[in-house]
């Protein structure tokens, strides 16, 4: 593997790590609840991308793990160039369930806005929450 390929691969991994750190900053430090929701979604997407990245193979004739037509040689060919199917199966449910949980959080934010007339955590903290 050449140096440039290694550099690009490390760049991809480190950029994802940086995205995770930025979204953690957004979750922890931004006062607005809607902004916290956006940061939470970015964190979830980046984590999913990481999981997929672990199942990838850095070769050129690479294929998704689906067989077009069954034959003995076709299966051998597929095993030579297919990526790992297990992380993909885990991530599909994670995306849809994460969306459902996000909808639940959004409804909670609307409820907070009805009660306190604000979505700013500093404003809400004035009402005496511990």
């Amino acid at each position: 593997m050449s140096l440039f390929e290694l550099f690009l691969w490390s760049f991809v991994v480190l950029a994802l790590v940086a995205t995770v750190l930025i979204s953690l900053y957004g979750i922890a430090k931004r006062p607005n609840l809607v902004k916290k929701l956006i940061a939470l979604t970015i964190l979830g997407d980046t984590a999913n991308l990481f999981v997929i990245l672990f199942g990838y193979r850095l070769i050129y004739p690479v294929a998704p793990p689906v067989l077009a037509q069954w034959s003995e040689s076709g299966v051998k060919e597929l095993l030579r160039k297919a990526v790992d199917p297990l992380p993909q199966a885990l991530v599909i449910t994670a995306i849809v369930i994460g969306m459902a949980v996000n909808i639940f959080i959004a409804f909670l934010i609307i409820q907070a806005h009805r009660l306190y007339r604000s979505v700013d955590t500093r404003e809400i903290a004035k009402y005496g929450g511990e």
Binding site: P61, V62, A63, P64, V66, A68
Partner: peptide
């Protein structure tokens, strides 16, 4: 459009 071009590049019908 770019994805459709890449589908030929990877020679895969599932993409």
């Amino acid at each position: 459009a770019f994805m459709a071009v890449l589908a030929i590049y990877f020679k895969s019908v599932f993409l």
